[in-house]
Design a protein around this nucleic acid. Structure first.
Length: 475
RNA sequence: GGCCCCUUCGUCUAGUGGUCCAGGACGUCGGCCUCUCACGCCGAAAACACGGGUUCGAGUCCCGUAGGGGUCACCA
């Protein structure tokens, strides 16, 4: 049994799309599961559209997702000799020929065919004509593919899929400028790199028999293919911008943990019984083509958010603190042990890192604004009077810990003769600026004695003078 | 339009002929918990596209129909 070798071969013409990211992930996981290798290859044969920025964007996206290549990246633009060799072999074996038909003529033929409702295929008029680019001017090289019979792909996820060879025309291998096309390079590279399994989007399914023919013309057998169901939007058409964010970066920016993204993407088209939450190690261990489904899957942001929440809860505070760092304001991350405390307190109720950072703000900075409506509702005269009573009790505390803070609240409640809610809400609004937060005792403890007392004082003072910064709550 | 693929709750899916009057999860709705918001817990509504076969028995196998998607470049 030869080593399993998979690859991800993006064309660098933009950002890393969630569909591409999932394809990469599946190939990576498949290789991991089988103890094989995962190769990264940049398909930059379209020199017009390829860019270095895109290569960087794709690599950083994969890096973030945790999809690491065992080999590569290889660049097709740097492997020309290999393609030349294959062309010579194809030409020598009579499996390819030069075609001098102009693009205009081809386009016209195509349109005519389409208009009359017939199939738009190249008519093979140059086949057997013996054209030579040196003699006859600009020419493309075409594969002389079989005109009859059929080609069957034994797909890893769909089983055997058969195409009639008469449906497949002679595809272009070399452009008239001499550069190789996708179909040629993909075959030559998969061969050269010893790729054994190709997992790719279902949109490639109809390319597969043609590529298989190139392999056979080269005297080789194609690798095993598995065509993955497409990721679609809510309207079930291929995922695109109008369905929401399609770039992996967008999810990073909205505070999705990479492990959660990988988990969610894996579950889009793959499953393992009823399990929803997977660690990286579990994915690597459990992923296989048997669990891959056939039907297109709709991308559901709400579920991604839930998965993210589960991962946030399961992430150790130190790690979570590091992950939230990019979302914090200047100066908010200066005290890392304090940050860990805050993060631990908020992890239970955070859905995204962005939300976590927002919740952490009132603990890490004094530059905050108070929710206008909450202030109006809870910090009226009565509320402020209760807070004064609370402050009195808190001042007396020798040790600032949760049970003492709770006792101080209890003492104030007795003085005031009210229920906890009547005191906790004003305190919450005063201390955090919002009417939603962790338990009020924990808030006091994590805020610390100095800050708690100072903030109570500040709110009372600035509210009276009208200096308290007010704003509608974010989000 | 030709070819190819697909079809279980709104969504992601379990299900490989009988244990399925179809299970889990997100979401939704109701309730409990409660200092707020979450978390958690309990409960509810919600699906085998349709029609024929095969079989003692079909969500599971076969054939059709319908619907959806993909693809038909000197893009990948």
């Amino acid at each position: 049994m030869p080593e399993v070798r998979t690859r991800f071969a993006p064309s660098p013409t933009g950002h890393l799309h969630v569909g591409g990211a999932r394809t990469a992930l599946f190939n990576y996981l498949f290789a991991r599961h089988h103890g094989g290798s995962f190769v990264l290859r940049i398909e930059d044969t379209d020199r017009e559209r390829s860019s270095d920025e895109s290569v960087q964007a794709i690599m950083s996206g994969l890096d973030w997702l945790g999809v690491v290549a065992d080999e590569g990246p290889y660049y097709q633009s740097k492997r020309a000799e290999l393609y030349d060799k294959a062309v010579a072999e194809l030409l020598g074996g009579g499996h390819a020929y030069w075609c001098v038909c102009s693009q205009e003529k081809l386009a016209a033929t195509r349109e005519a065919a389409q208009a009359s409702g017939k199939k738009a295929m190249y008519d093979r008029s140059c086949r057997g004509a013996g054209h030579e680019p040196a003699l006859d001017g600009p020419a493309v090289l075409r594969l002389a593919s079989p005109e009859s019979g059929e080609t069957t792909i034994d797909d890893l996820v769909r089983g055997p899929v058969t195409f009639d060879n008469s449906e497949l025309d002679d595809l272009v291998l070399l452009r008239s400028d001499g550069s190789p096309t996708f179909h040629l390079v993909v075959v030559v590279d998969d061969l050269d790199m010893g790729i054994t399994h190709v997992l790719r989007g279902e949109d490639h399914l109809t390319n597969t028999p043609r590529q298989a023919q190139i392999f056979r013309s080269l005297g080789q057998e194609p690798p095993r293919y598995g065509h993955l169901p497409l990721i679609v939007g809510a309207d079930r058409s291929r995922l695109s911008k109008r369905h929401g964010a399609t770039s992996l970066d967008a999810y990073r920016e909205m505070g999705i943990l990479p492990g959660a993204m990988a988990n969610y993407l894996a579950r889009l088209g793959w499953s393992h019984g009823d399990q929803e939450i997977f660690s990286r190690a579990e994915l690597s261990g459990l992923f296989d083509v048997e669990g891959v489904g056939k039907a297109a899957a709709a991308f559901d942001l709400e579920k991604l958010r839930w998965v993210n929440q589960q991962h946030i809860k399961a992430t150790p505070p130190a790690e979570l603190a590091a992950a939230v760092l990019p979302f914090l304001g200047a100066g908010e991350a200066d005290d890392s042990s304090r940050l860990e405390l805050v993060v631990e307190l908020l992890a239970e109720r955070a859905v995204t890192l962005v939300g976590l950072a927002e919740g952490a703000h009132c603990f890490l900075s004094d530059d905050l604004s108070w929710d206008r409506k909450a202030v109006a509702r809870f910090l009226d005269e009565e509320g402020l009077a209760r807070l004064a009573a609370l402050a009195q009790q808190l001042e007396l505390l020798a040790d600032w810990d949760e049970s003492n803070v709770e006792a101080a609240f209890a003492a104030a409640l007795v003085d005031l003769d009210v229920k906890l809610g009547k005191l906790a809400q004003p305190a919450r609004v005063a201390l955090t600026g919002s009417k939603a937060s962790p338990g009020i005792y924990e808030v006091c403890v994590v805020l610390g004695r100095e800050r708690t007392l100072a903030r109570l004082q500040r709110v009372a003072g600035e509210l009276a003078s009208g200096d308290l910064p007010l704003a509608a709550p974010a989000g």
